[in-house]
């Protein structure tokens, strides 16, 4: 084989080897890498849900006085239907957390129980629910921070 023939032979080998390698990589990426919009939305929603719940529970575990947490204050407020103290203190606490006033709603079961402040933005900051027990049953409490307040 002459010199030119060797170069062509090398080039042909290189092209074939490279093509197979690139094809294999592309095939693998396509096989494993794609997620539909529905799937990625599902993951995003689930992660937001988990983060919101974690945040809500940590709010309720925050100390209100030496012996009481906001969770204790909330369950007392719900049980005694006396929401004034809870609203004032929790609103102040949320203002400290978000460094500005926020508009928020609290639902007991399906019923809207508290609605505090008027929103100026509609970027939802938190939406989560937990269970607060009573002796014979439990309350389903949903907290929704709808955005920053006016």
């Amino acid at each position: 084989m002459d010199k030119k023939g060797v170069i062509w032979e090398e080039l042909a080998d290189f092209l074939l080897g490279g093509a197979i390698l690139i094809a294999a990589i592309i095939f693998f990426i396509i096989m494993t890498g794609f997620t539909t919009e529905k799937e990625s939305d599902y993951f995003e929603e689930e992660i937001i849900d988990v983060k919101d719940k974690e945040l809500f529970i940590s709010f309720l575990r925050e100390e209100y006085t030496d012996d009481e947490t906001f969770g204790d204050l909330l369950s007392e407020a719900v049980e005694n239907s006396e929401k004034k103290t809870f609203i004032e203190n929790f609103d102040m606490f949320l203002e400290e957390v978000y460094e500005t006033k926020v508009c928020w709603k609290l639902y007991v079961g399906e019923e809207e129980w508290i609605s505090k402040n008027i929103c100026r933005t509609d970027i939802e900051l938190l939406d989560s629910q937990i269970y607060v027990p009573t002796l014979n049953s439990y309350y389903k409490i949903r907290m929704n921070i709808l955005g920053y307040a006016q």
Binding site: K53, E54, I57, L60, R61, G71, D72, S75, I130, Y131, V132, P133, T134, L135, Y138
Partner: peptide, 15 residues
């Protein structure tokens, strides 16, 4: 788990 632990804490207090 966190929801359950919160429920237990609040439950112990109520009890």
């Amino acid at each position: 788990g966190e929801v359950i632990l919160f429920y237990i804490d609040q439950g112990a207090r109520a009890a």
